[in-house]
């Protein structure tokens, strides 16, 4: 088992920040807004690792900082502090130390991201197939036929009718848009995939089939994934290990079955007790 990602002390503060931001926010203070300067401490001192082919769950309510964690790793946001190392075969990349061009290269070639909101992950101005083609082009594939064939294959794999590949994403249902997003993210077979609330807001049956798809893909490609969700069911189904976040802090981390059966922290106990 090889480590693929190591994150140390990752923090993100929105606002000017002050000397009291850290002391006066977090689960013990019941807020992530600094009462002195009004800055939002979205995430503070997150440290964790991820191994090849592993699925790590991050669970927490809105404002817990779980999305911030993956957005900084995918370079959507710049962190305020901390570092992260991506281990890619023999190479190591200091994610927040490399320049923007290198970051873009990694995001395009080695990472994938699926957002809750398909508008963030898909270009709505071009067709479903075009979205996939875009990602293949960014990663260096230039042959039209090869791109078309690969897009068709990916859409088939994610159970989108390939006959619809030339349609615009807006013509698709929410569940189908997520499938196209997944197909796009997978186009380059990234070793590391981030999934941010990908099933939130979908019908239960559609949720189930998308979760099944994610699991199958993880098996086939041995993709390491970080799954962000507020849904214990998603964690139970997908994640081997789970981190629980609240007000920007990791309050508990452990094997998923242990988090669910023997939660240690008062908040996690309440969370598990209130799940349906």
């Amino acid at each position: 088992m090889k480590k693929i990602l190591e994150v140390n002390g990752l923090s993100k503060i929105y606002g000017s920040g002050c000397t009291q931001c850290i002391d006066r926010t977090g689960p013990d203070c019941d807020t992530n807004i600094c009462p002195k300067c009004g800055s939002v401490v979205a995430a503070h001192d997150l440290s964790f690792d991820l191994y090849q082919g592993e699925i790590l769950g991050i669970i927490g309510e809105s404002g817990s900082g779980k999305s911030t964690a993956v957005q900084t790793l995918y370079f959507d946001q710049a962190p305020t502090a901390g570092n992260a190392t991506f281990f890619d075969g023999e190479a190591q990349h200091d994610l927040f130390g490399i320049n923007k061009a290198r970051q873009r290269y990694l995001a395009n070639h080695r990472f994938g991201m699926v957002y809750q909101n398909p508008h963030l992950g898909l270009n709505f101005g071009i067709s479903a197939g075009g979205n996939i083609a875009e990602r293949l082009l960014m990663s260096g594939e230039m042959r039209y036929d090869a791109i078309r064939a690969r897009a068709r294959q990916l859409l088939t794999r994610t159970e989108v009718l390939p006959e619809r590949m030339d349609e615009l994403p807006k013509n698709f249902s929410g569940g189908m848009q997520q499938r196209v997003q997944i197909a796009k993210a997978l186009a380059i077979e990234p070793p590391l995939l981030f999934l941010d609330e990908v099933t939130t807001g979908l019908d239960l049956s559609v949720q189930a089939s998308i979760l099944d798809l994610i699991l199958e893909i993880q098996r086939e490609l041995n993709t390491a994934m970080i799954v962000v969700t507020h849904d214990l069911g998603v964690i139970r189904l997908l994640a081997g290990r789970t981190m629980v976040m609240k007000y920007g802090r990791i309050i508990e981390t452990g094997l998923t079955d242990q988090i669910l059966e023997d939660p240690q922290h008062a908040y996690t106990q309440r969370l598990v007790a209130s799940s349906l």
Binding site: G254, L255, D257, Q258, E261, D262, Q264
Partner: peptide, 9 residues
């Protein structure tokens, strides 16, 4: 048993 399997801490 749960302790050995670490379902319990």
């Amino acid at each position: 048993l749960n302790g050995i399997y670490r379902t319990y801490l």
